[in-house]
Design a protein around this nucleic acid. Sequence first.
DNA 1: CCAAAAGTGTTAAAACTACACCCATGA
DNA 2: TCATGGGTGTAGTTTTAACACTTTTGG
Lengths: 229, 229
Amino acid sequence: MGHTYEYARPALAVDVVVFALDDEDLQVMLIQRDLPPFAGQWALPGGFVRVAETLDAAAQRELREESGLEGIFLEQLYTFGDLARDPRERVVTVAYYALVNLAGHDVRAGTDAKNAAWFPVGELPDLAFDHCRIVDAALARLRGKVRYQPLGFELLPERFTLRQLQHLYEIVLGRPLDKRNFRKKVLGMGILKDTREIEKDVAHRAARLFRFDERAYERLKRRGFLFEL
Amino acid sequence: MGHTYEYARPALAVDVVVFALDDEDLQVMLIQRDLPPFAGQWALPGGFVRVAETLDAAAQRELREESGLEGIFLEQLYTFGDLARDPRERVVTVAYYALVNLAGHDVRAGTDAKNAAWFPVGELPDLAFDHCRIVDAALARLRGKVRYQPLGFELLPERFTLRQLQHLYEIVLGRPLDKRNFRKKVLGMGILKDTREIEKDVAHRAARLFRFDERAYERLKRRGFLFEL
DNA sequence: CCAAAAGTGTTAAAACTACACCCATGA
DNA sequence: TCATGGGTGTAGTTTTAACACTTTTGG
């Protein structure tokens, strides 16, 4: 066995930065490595791209294998190609970022990894390879993009309160927002559908539950509407 | 010679979409291929990444070798990894886009290519591989980014008139802008430096020449200023 | 009845849009 | 003197930002 090429080739990998929203902060999923290099250290889920597999498929597969997550929002971020990012040999990695709502999905350790866990984005441990840079890039992308595209809903359960939505934006953008102005603006867009249901089991007045109305959003977008928050 | 790996690896390439501004429209630089596959067809400048070369370096090198362009704005765009994008074998390509001002640089055909030429972005010939998709992605990125980052100046000579700047935005954004409002806004940002010079050899009143004030822009950015047009 | 969050309008300031004329220059 | 673009201000409208109290619910 073995594959021979005329010129040396970099290895090609994918890595995924998975974000989720806790009550308190934005979290990133990390995997504790059980193989060298960096055995025992925390790293992003990821691995090598197979020769007959698209990049998106590789990212999805690694995510599934290492964390059990499936069917979540996944988007290509940036490709990292520094010469010494992997001590073994030249590895170029196509980084992705993903958004998931913690309520709807369980994370379990997969076959390639000892352990998977969530860490607040501000308190990450030392990461293997250049994964720290990748997380920084993903965070910058999320912060920039969340204001102009309705990504935030991916971090919430299907039905959510306006308070949850505002809280999400406050955490991602890192600054407080005015409650009345926020509600006025987001309701005025016409992309939220009132489910006519309310929260349960809360120790205060229950809030209405909304759903992101994808159809309405697509319709508005075609008419030139721009999401902006 | 030959390099052997345990698992088959995709080949890794870079391709560059170079934009320049003509009086009339946005142009893209293409290379006429002299080797199969797609011999004789037009394609983006690009080629394989060497094993000891970063992605940015590979993009710069290919640009220099195939078009003679050097020292211009270059930014990673997206990585394309469809299975059949190259008929020979699996090739993943990291696409870049570049901005250049036509006045300051000559384009000449390089060693790997028969011919280099500019085409208006709306009238491109059939392109090799999936290069049409790559151009579309680059154009979308340029259109989106030019409003929020001072990229446009890369397409103009170092000293330019407000008319040239407005014209650039009209072409890239594809809609007319109001002259007075445009000037008010862009001058109000404080990122243009009046060179105290004026146009030469024009058959009408000569306009003042401005320069993009990088220092002022960086200073303002640190204080939370956001470029927006 | 207390704690906690839901829900709701107004006003002032700032930003945006639309719009038209005189000026300087070279041909 | 004509053609071409340079340069300039205002008014109406829209958007944004700041701000506080009453209501509902469960404990």
